[in-house]
Design a protein around this nucleic acid. Sequence first.
DNA 1: AAGGCGACCAACCGCATTGGA
DNA 2: ATCCAATGCGGTTGGTCGCCT
Length: 282
Amino acid sequence: MGRQPCCDKVGLKKGPWTADEDRKLMNFILTHGQCCWRAVPKLAGLLRCGKSCRLRWTNYLRPDLKRGLLSDNEEKMVIDLHSQLGNRWSKIASHLPGRTDNEIKNHWNTHIKKKLRKMGIDPLTHKPLSIVEQEEEKPLKKLQKPMEQTVEEPPNYSLTKDSNNKNMLVSYDDQLMAMNLEYCVEEVPMIDPECLELICNNSSMSSSTSTSSSSSNESSILKDLQFPDFDWSDYGIHNNNNGVGNIMENNVMSLWDVDDFSSWDLLLNDDIPQSSSTFGLF
DNA sequence: AAGGCGACCAACCGCATTGGA
DNA sequence: ATCCAATGCGGTTGGTCGCCT
């Protein structure tokens, strides 16, 4: 006996959401808050499964979402967090307010992976590719080792400049020795900010155009959506002279300007259940 | 102009986890 | 302790768009 489907899929719509569906879902959530996703489609008058509604809301419609490409800083954070957390996208996303796990996952798979490979770093292990390849070439040796014996891990590396201003990989141990620093091992990021800076600087040269284009794109997406029952001004989004919603300011929704970021605690605190609703808006 | 191709990303699928009965 | 519904999560798919030939 297989698992029951999450909902009765007969007659349910799939695929891209229409502006009308978005409006219905948005109006419903803003009126009633988030509760019982299974019931949402019926109550909101949507021919969608509850799961689909939840995804659409969390990944696209939530008013607190940032849009557009990840900034250099955000990208650095993602790489750093990924080195510590692995593919736990929701955990990573919880450290980046306004970003969704889906968005970060997509960005990782399409942009960051490539950049890291270009830098000679394995995106899975965050170690230099040459070492990873060596390890893959000697699987038998590894297998022959007794289980109790600890496998000697290669040191974690970061990218730095040598005296000739050429990029070079230096192990953390070497760096720490050089800097005479003590470090709590559990908190050592596998790639240091210096390295990330280089990665991001390189990337920003190649992707700067897409950054600017996406921000105009995102406002048009919201522009296209018309929410007759929803007053964006409540969320710090005001009309400009052209009658167009001034949604983005420095690539961040004005919503975040409200209340000195006090609501971020809600987002970042794992103890607060998601059902406590978005930042006390409801 | 049009067809091929790859990149991007929204959305889906199915397993895992959680929480209440 | 167990079951089951609801929700969360991560991997994958497929549609769209832009670039190249």
